[in-house]
């Protein structure tokens, strides 16, 4: 499979390419009542490479993702995409500015078909007016027809065309994760956040998806990879950030980070 080609053919030709921009986190903090879940975290997620975020269970990884995605408020600090401040923006505006995500516990429209699940991902690209939707004007149904074709392209390239009409909830775990990724990619994001995308998959499946992530990054997308699988992260990421009990304890290239005594301590459970 030629992933860079996939990306160009189904993204770039229809919509103008998005300028790549860096997502910056500065002093991001989240308190729930008296508990500080994320404390003073600052790092960048630049385009064109995969940035890793690892840490033991309960380290605050998903809280951080939810703050970036606009689901949780920030107690302190700010988040910017390029120069645009996103700290207060609601989830849908964050998504419209070009940030897509997958969910740690897969969230698909279980009874809708796989094709329909991917189709909703194109929402951000829809241009037909409300009036044309309501009146059933050609602009509306042409758009639906075009997006359907593009959703099929995406399915083909993920090797999922056989399941197009299958209810998404009835698929295997690995296939459901793929549907979620296709849906996120359909939004043509500048930044893609993957929350444990290969959890529960075997090494072959994981490697296959890893190749996809790498090719997306090569094409200029910013990718944030949250994973437990340390070898997987080591192989893919240019930079790794390690969270432990809400604090950023290490940042840097994989080799350096993994030799860091604080990281070793956190992973052995003595920190």
């Amino acid at each position: 499979m030629e992933w860079p080609i996939l990306w160009r053919s189904c993204a770039v030709d229809a919509a103008p390419p998005m300028p790549s921009e860096t997502l910056t986190l500065r002093h991001v903090t989240k308190r729930f009542g008296g508990v500080t879940a994320v404390s003073d975290v600052s790092f960048d997620i630049p385009p064109g490479r995969i940035t890793g975020l690892i840490g033991p269970n309960g380290a605050g990884k998903s809280t951080l993702v939810n703050m970036i995605a606009g689901v949780l408020t920030l107690s302190e600090g700010d988040i910017r995409l390029g120069s645009r401040l996103l700290s207060q923006a609601p989830a849908f505006e964050v998504a419209r500015s070009g940030i897509a995500r997958t969910f740690q516990n897969i969230r698909l429209l279980a009874e809708a078909s796989v094709l329909d699940n991917v189709l909703v991902g194109f929402h951000r690209l829809e241009r037909a007016s409300l009036a044309s939707h309501l009146l059933g004007l050609p602009a509306s149904w042409r758009e639906t027809r075009d997006l359907r074709a593009r959703a099929r392209d995406l399915l083909n390239r993920f090797g999922m065309q056989r399941y197009a009409e299958y209810p998404a909830g009835g698929l295997s775990y690995g296939h459901q994760r793929r549907v979620e990724m296709m849906r996120a990619l359909a939004t043509q994001p500048r930044l893609l956040m993957l929350d444990e995308p290969v959890a529960g998959m075997n090494d072959v499946e994981a490697a296959e998806l890893g190749d996809i992530f790498a090719s997306l990054a090569r094409d200029g997308m910013a990718v944030l990879l949250i994973e437990h699988n340390v070898p997987f992260v080591m192989r893919l990421c240019a930079e790794i950030n390690v969270l432990d009990t809400g604090r950023l304890i290490a940042s840097g290239p994989p080799g350096t980070v993994m030799r860091d005594p604080a990281v070793i301590a956190a992973y052995l459970g003595t920190g």
Binding site: F92, A95, L134, T144
Partner: peptide, 29 residues
């Protein structure tokens, strides 16, 4: 009107919002 909505992006947005508001938000709806 109902069929037009059903076949449009608006219908898809409605279906997504009904089933999972968090997912809808994450897709820019």
């Amino acid at each position: 009107l109902m069929v037009a909505i059903d076949r449009s992006g608006l219908g898809r947005a409605f279906d997504t919002v009904r089933q999972d508001e968090t997912v809808a938000g994450s897709l820019g709806i």
